[in-house]
């Protein structure tokens, strides 16, 4: 039994359901073993047995990888009901909710790592979410699509169109990304928040990139911590 009206809403499409089924929320290059490079880097970064909170854990692919390979004690937060079912189907513990609800119920230092994997650009209270993350955890891992990538820049410059690229696959009217940021923007932002990058990692169209990340990288991945100087 479904309430009248829902079908109509579904026909018109809500942003959650109009996302492509695979490679969410945007295409990210994979290593030869089929693991996304950002996941690969995050799994390498996180120490064995860490306590991990994955904000926007989606179907739980990364969290499952962390449990299997690093034996982490992990939990996720995910807003999409359908994705929570899939994550639970992988044996994970997930909280069905919005990361903008905040983390105030967690005491300080409850986790070693908070992960914002392809989530930050969809959060409303960006600064608050990041500051809260570094209150409840020692480290914050953030990955996001780079709007400064040359492909996006060229679409804007040459065609005068809002960029639609493999990393940013949405038309302007259906994108879940409410923030458009570049790697340069992000660096400035974390400095202003009193955070510093412990490690960073950049992914191009097919593989990691090591130079000119703001131009060459489709995605950036940062491991942040509080900057004790500030």
């Amino acid at each position: 039994m479904r309430r009248p009206g829902r079908e109509l809403r579904e026909l018109l499409g809500n942003p959650e359901q109009s996302r492509p089924a695979e490679g969410l929320p945007s295409r990210i290059a994979r290593d030869p073993a089929g693991v996304r490079y950002d996941h690969h880097f995050i799994v390498d970064t996180i120490e064995e047995g860490s306590r991990v909170l994955d904000l926007g854990c989606g179907r739980g692919v990364l969290l499952r990888l962390l449990v299997d390979r690093k034996n982490v004690r992990g939990t996720g937060v995910e807003i999409s009901e359908e994705k929570v079912y899939e994550a639970v189907g992988k044996g994970l513990s997930v909280y069905h909710g919005d990361i903008d609800e905040g983390l105030s119920y967690y005491p300080d230092g409850m986790f070693d790592y908070v992960i914002l994997s392809q989530t930050l650009q969809e959060a409303r209270a960006t600064a608050l979410v990041m500051c809260e993350a570094l209150r409840v955890a020692k480290h914050l891992v953030v990955s996001f699509p780079n709007f400064g990538h040359w492909r996006a820049r060229s679409q804007l410059l040459l065609r005068g169109r809002a960029p639609v690229t493999p990393a940013l696959p949405y038309e302007w009217y259906e994108t879940p990304n409410i923030h458009s940021l570049t790697i340069a923007d992000f660096r400035l932002f974390i400095a202003n928040l009193g955070m510093k990058a412990e490690r960073s990692f950049y992914i191009g169209r097919r593989s990691p990139v090591g130079f000119w990340p703001n131009l060459m990288a489709e995605h950036g991945v940062y491991v942040l911590t509080r900057d004790s100087v500030k």
């Binding site: 939990t75 009901e81 079912y85 513990s93 997930v94 909280y95 005491p107």
Partner: peptide, 10 residues
């Protein structure tokens, strides 16, 4: 969760 306990909510 405030007690650090394992909980799934839907």
């Amino acid at each position: 969760k405030g007690n650090g306990l394992d909980c799934t909510y839907l």
